[in-house]
């Protein structure tokens, strides 16, 4: 039983590290696209920071950025 669960853990670890292996191209493209979206709503000076980490329920994706001002606008709902 111990051998089996050790083997499963090993497979899980290998697969997890492969899945986390995100290239620089992916990160750059995502941050660029995300910035474009964010700039419609916020005034930002620096690019957002993307952080992906393994979590109990999968992968936790954290995107953080600083804003100087929220861009005010009225929508149809308002």
């Amino acid at each position: 039983m111990k051998n089996k669960s050790r083997e499963i853990m090993r497979v899980q670890n290998v697969i997890d590290s492969d899945r986390l292996n995100v290239g620089k191209g992916f990160t750059d493209l995502f941050v660029e696209d995300f910035s474009k979206l964010v700039q419609d709503y916020f005034e930002i000076e620096k690019q957002p920071i993307l952080n992906i980490a393994k979590d109990k329920n999968g992968y936790k994706v954290e995107i953080s950025f600083y804003t100087n001002r929220v861009k005010p606008f009225n929508s149809i709902v308002d």
Binding site: M1, N3, K4, E7, I8, V11, Q12, I15
Partner: peptide, 14 residues
């Protein structure tokens, strides 16, 4: 004998 990963485990892993 629990020496091979079971199909259920494989389905969960992938």
């Amino acid at each position: 004998n629990k020496k091979m990963i079971s199909p259920t485990d494989i389905e969960l892993l992938l």
